[in-house]
């Protein structure tokens, strides 16, 4: 997920196609079809040559196919099997049917982890996207030094997932550190956030919001595609900046917004590293399970308690949950995502 975002910021699944002045686009498949000249007629290759080319194609792909089968598909199938077994890594897995799932649902700590992850996704994702969109709007004006600001705002999302930043974050939010002192300026003498199980999750939220650079770049690309003349027309009609944003910008970038919501939501569900490091102080993901996000608990069950069967079941539960949320988002998009005519 990360790699896709950081290495190729611009491409989106439904990029806003280049539009002509009349607002119409070629009725093409979105990503690459738009500007490509049609294939020269009369050069239909002979079948056996096509087969040879196919073969060559598969040969070139084979390292990735092998990698996918061995390192992704195979382990996934295995973990699906383990989800229904009692497996401690040492002894052969014992088939126990749905016991792992029954145990999971009855486990108060599992419910805690679901709750914390839910809060993290529900609070962190919108805040991060709001920050990204806000800054993208500011950066969408032509001013000197825009390139610098863009790079500067983007930088945190490159380093934010690193261990060192998590350690820095822990220091910033500790007792008597920067955040604590800033609070005291406003008369809040509540102490740092790291030792408080109810507030430490907001340190994680702050960390993810701080990494708004990746969605910001995607928003910027979307904003640049909004035709100027729409704003000009609106201005002539006397629309306020707020109305212009609400009625032009937002609908026009809604496909990009959808893409960002989808990506960041899925990404949020997978939070692990920062929660594990910021929360670990003797107890993994503490204090008092304050940062026990779902993947942390999965890790603890699998690698500390050697219960790989239960951990596999948890992993599949997470996949189901993320799949469900994704499905709901896709279902909802017809109500709020506006693709330009013909682009869908």
């Amino acid at each position: 997920m990360d790699a896709a975002v950081t290495s190729a910021p611009t491409p989106t699944p439904h990029p806003v196609p280049a539009t002509g002045p009349d607002g119409r686009t070629a009725p093409a498949d979105p990503p690459s079809g738009a500007g490509r000249p049609p294939r020269a007629a009369g050069r239909t290759p002979r079948p056996h040559r096509a087969r040879r080319e196919n073969l060559a194609g598969y040969l070139f792909m084979s390292p990735w196919i092998a990698g996918f089968l061995l390192l992704t598909a195979g382990p996934m199938v295995a973990s699906l099997y383990f989800a229904f077994t009692d497996y401690n890594l040492f002894d052969a897995p014992q088939w126990i049917g749905l016991d792992n799932f029954t145990e999971m649902f009855g486990d108060p700590r599992w419910r805690t982890s679901v709750e914390i992850t839910g809060w993290y996704v529900v609070i962190g994702t919108p805040l991060k996207l709001a920050a990204a969109l806000g800054v993208a709007l500011l950066l969408n004006q032509s001013r000197r030094g825009q390139g610098f600001y863009r790079a500067a705002f983007y930088a945190p999302s490159l380093i934010g997932a690193s261990v060192s930043i998590a350690i820095v974050w822990r220091a910033i939010f500790s007792d008597g550190a920067a955040v604590d002192r800033a609070q005291q300026v406003f008369g809040m003498d509540a102490g740092g956030w790291i030792g408080d199980p109810d507030r430490i999750i907001y340190a994680l939220v702050a960390l993810t919001v701080w990494q708004f650079g990746a969605p910001m770049v995607i928003f910027l690309a979307g904003l640049k595609q909004v035709p100027r003349e729409l704003y000009e027309a609106a201005q002539v009609d006397g629309a306020s900046p707020w109305r212009r944003f609400w009625h032009i910008t937002l609908p026009m970038i809604s496909p990009v917004l959808f893409f960002n919501v989808l990506l960041e939501t899925i990404h949020s569900f997978q939070i692990f590293g920062s929660a594990y490091i910021i929360g670990s102080q003797g107890n993994a993901c503490g204090p008092a399970d304050g940062t026990l996000v779902y993947t942390c608990y999965l890790y603890i069950q699998g690698f500390e308690n050697s219960r790989m069967g239960l951990a596999s079941a948890m992993a599949w539960m997470l996949l189901l949950a993320v799949g469900l949320v994704t499905a709901v988002l896709f279902w909802s998009q017809r109500r709020w995502v506006h693709y330009e005519e013909g682009a869908r």
């Binding site: 061995l70 390192l71 992704t72 195979g74 382990p75 996934m76 295995a78 973990s79 383990f82 569900f269 997978q270 692990f272 779902y294 993947t295 999965l298 890790y299 699998g302 690698f303 790989m308 951990a311 596999s312 992993a315 599949w316 997470l318 996949l319 993320v322």
Partner: peptide, 11 residues
């Protein structure tokens, strides 16, 4: 998520 379990199996 799955990467955790999958990765360990691969390892």
């Amino acid at each position: 998520m799955l990467k955790v379990a999958g990765g360990s199996l691969a390892a």
